[in-house]
Design a protein around this nucleic acid. Structure first.
Length: 228
DNA sequence: ATGAAGATTGCCT
DNA sequence: GGCAATCTTCATG
């Protein structure tokens, strides 16, 4: 069933672990793709140096300052989209939960087509680590990472602000089927790739789940070489 | 106006 | 493990 808006009307640190196991669906003319969430990160907003909302409201992050239960989609690194669920802590706190990874539970073929450049190679899905690109992408890697998740679900800037709490919305969040194998083992750790407040354990994931992304500490890019 | 950094990913050695 | 791709956003002059 659809997640009620009150679910999101709490601090993001409380919402984040509860989102694990929930299912994000996106229905387009091409079909439906659904992802069961296995990894998320909480961002506290105005009080969180790692949050896009830390320095106040801008055009990009405006949705985070709005009502809970909406999607905050942003574009980064010149090529990737990431999606958050807007929550509500203190008034105007602009808190949100970044959806980092999940398992495809519907529309896997469509998700793979979106994640593959060119025609999809034939043959069985390989086991273990495999290269991306021309190779057939393993199921576990289809939404393993925030930008991959968006690519598999075809989430882009046009969905920034989308309400995920109304039936009939192309993008919606529903409660999971209740996978007993996963329900017991939620673990936490530091958030991935953040340059400040890196020690705060606001990343939540299912321990041992193969669809959880690999942890990487923040790595600043080397400066562009000067041209004399 | 300009430039640096970015809640990342995939390919290369 | 290193690094290029690619462009928007934000801070500064």
């Amino acid at each position: 069933m659809l997640i009620p808006r009150e679910f999101f009307a709490r601090p993001s640190v409380e919402v984040a672990p509860d989102l694990l196991g929930c299912v994000l669906e996106h229905e387009t003319p091409d079909g439906l793709v659904a992802v069961e969430l296995t990894e998320v990160e909480a961002y506290a907003g105005r009080s969180d140096p790692a949050s896009h909302a830390y320095r106040g409201k801008t055009r990009r992050n405006a949705v985070m300052f709005g009502p809970p239960g909406h999607a905050y989609v942003y574009f980064t690194y010149g090529m990737h989209f990431c999606v958050n669920m807007v929550c509500l802590g203190e008034e105007g706190s602009a808190s949100a939960v970044l959806l980092r990874a999940g398992a495809i539970i519907a529309g896997e073929d469509l998700a793979r087509a979106r994640r593959t450049r060119g025609p999809i190679p034939e043959g069985p899905i390989p086991e273990g680590p495999i290269p991306e690109g021309r190779a057939r992408i393993a199921s576990r890697d289809l939404a393993r990472g925030p930008a991959r998740l968006c690519q598999a679900l075809a989430i882009d800037r046009s969905l920034d602000g989308a309400d995920v709490c109304v039936a009939g919305s192309a993008l919606r969040m529903r409660s999971g089927a209740g996978n007993p194998a996963r329900s017991a083992t939620i673990v936490t750790g530091p958030r991935v790739g953040v340059s400040s407040a890196a020690e705060i354990p606001w990343r939540f994931w299912y321990e041992g789940d193969p669809t959880v992304s690999v942890y990487r500490p923040h790595a600043p890019r080397r400066p562009k070489p000067v041209t004399p």
